[in-house]
């Protein structure tokens, strides 16, 4: 019992650190004026989210989060930011405008809406979480689900990635062609 409560306290401490890192870096992404710093803050956000996923027994998703997001996607972001040059823009430029006030109002309304809907619809069974097997969330478990119950999702995901890759190539290649290279009729 003592060991169980010590583990509980440890998980609480890790959760508090990860959750505050997550929220702080999220606010930092939105408020930095330089997109380079915003991208770096987003890497911290993704890393602390991976810790939260680990606490929720989602080991494979946490590993994929670090590899795919913090690795591949953010490197692409940093390359593009370095390519087009850092352009600073202050989020609160020119005092309070009606646009900024509307944005803050809309985001606050979204937050209230999320809290109210989850509180009304899901609060009944949130206090008690199911006990899960030790294999829950492991790569073998995810792989078996992907190839049995969720095969259609797996195949559709591959098509989405293929379409996005072709779209990226077309968007990147089209604008490189300068007008003089186009054969005249």
């Amino acid at each position: 019992m003592l060991i169980a409560s010590a583990g509980n306290v440890l998980v609480w401490i890790v959760w508090i650190v990860a959750a505050f890192a997550c929220l702080g870096s999220g606010i930092a992404v939105v408020s930095f004026s330089n997109p380079f710093y915003s991208a770096l803050a987003l890497i911290g956000n993704l890393g602390s989210l991976a810790v939260l996923y680990l606490l929720l027994n989602a080991e494979f998703v946490a590993a994929a989060q670090v590899l795919v997001y913090a690795g591949a996607v953010m490197v692409m972001f940093l390359f593009v930011i370095a390519y087009i040059g850092p352009r600073t823009e202050s989020p609160w430029m020119g005092g309070p405008s009606w646009q900024a006030a509307g944005a803050v109002l809309a985001a606050g309304a979204l937050l209230v809406e999320i809290v109210v809907v989850i509180g009304l619809k899901a609060s009944g069974h949130l206090a008690h979480s199911e006990h899960v097997d030790r294999t829950f969330g492991t790569p073998a478990y995810i792989g078996r689900l992907f190839l049995t119950d969720h095969l259609l999702a797996f195949e559709i995901t591959s098509i989405v990635l293929l379409v996005a890759a072709i779209g990226g190539v077309i968007l990147g290649a089209h604008s490189r062609r300068s007008p003089e290279e186009v054969p005249s009729l």
């Binding site: 959760w15 027994n57 989850i118 949130l126 006990h131 097997d133």
Partner: peptide, 12 residues
């Protein structure tokens, strides 16, 4: 079988 340690799901 393992139980969920730490905060409840509502915190997440």
């Amino acid at each position: 079988m393992t139980a969920l340690l730490g905060p409840e799901i509502s915190w997440y």
